Computed example of a mutant assay.
Amino acid sequence: MLLEQTMSRMHALRLPGMAQALEEQYRNAAIADLGFDERLAMLVDREHSWRENRRMSRLLQMAKLKSSQACVEDIQYGQGRQLDKSLMAQLGTCQWIRQHQNLVLTGATGCGKTWLACAMGNAACRQGLSVLYVRTPRLFEELRIAHGDGSFGKRLVALAKTDLLILDDWGLAPLTQSDRNDLLEVLDDRVGSRSTLITSQLPSEHWHAYLDDPTLADAILDRVLHAAHKIALSGESLRKSVNGVSPKRDRLG
């Protein structure tokens, strides 16, 4: 009865991890030989782990990663991709995000840009950082709708609070003047305070012409490229079958 009452109070105090650990301790006779301090430490550790796991699950859900299983531990370095292992290991620590730097991934279709971006997003979530993945054309569509229903300001605030914003498929479609203005607003809120990861088939040296407005292009690119790590992926498309067997879809992008 005392155990049930204690567990009930733990749940009331929102300590489910600790409650579960306490129940397991009562079922394990060997734990009875441990001292009070050790048993208490085990309860606290379980609660901490439970909260961290719950937070990570929530961050991953909110990130909406296209390749949810992508992770930096599975990065492929062969097939002429010219990926620097030391650089990728450094980026995998997410220190660049904490220092509010950007990351630009360019390369032909199928070379793994999207998968690699999602792997970085996954790493960020596992380290307690907020992430949002969105295809750039879709973002512009959402912002147009936000202008219409009056939620544009609220949407900008939400984007500005995200530690890592992943803009996939940059440069696929022509931009309107409104798109360019909105893009500058989004990026300006992130300079020096948040990080942006961009993937594009278009090499970064062609972005100025793509933006098609010299003044806004200068402002946008200054905010993106000034403090950015740039990786140009090469090699054959990962979508090509290898010995007649197609590679996993979550390795593509």
Rank of each mutant, 00 (worst) to 15 (best):
C94M: 13
R98T: 02
S151M: 09
D74R: 13
L221N: 08
I166M: 05
R27C: 03
Q201C: 01
R9S: 04
R98C: 06
R223W: 07
P214L: 02
V224K: 07
G121L: 10
S234L: 10
G192Y: 00
H229S: 04
L143S: 01
L129G: 04
S237I: 13
S68I: 12
G171F: 10
R155Y: 07
S130G: 02
K161C: 06
D222R: 13
Q82D: 12
A209L: 11
L202Q: 13
L43D: 07
A160L: 11
I231H: 02
S204N: 05
E236A: 12
L40V: 07
V134D: 00
G110W: 09
D189S: 12
H11N: 09
A209E: 06
L132T: 05
D33P: 02
V72D: 02
D182W: 14
Q177V: 08
A32F: 15
L175Q: 11
L22C: 03
P174N: 02
G112Q: 01
E4R: 14
E73S: 13
D163I: 14
S151D: 06
H100L: 07
R135C: 04
A219H: 02
T215M: 06
D84I: 14
W115F: 12
L83D: 09
W207N: 01
Q61C: 12
M7D: 12
H100C: 09
K154T: 11
G35I: 07
L129Q: 06
E4S: 13
R27W: 01
H208D: 08
D168M: 03
R251Q: 14
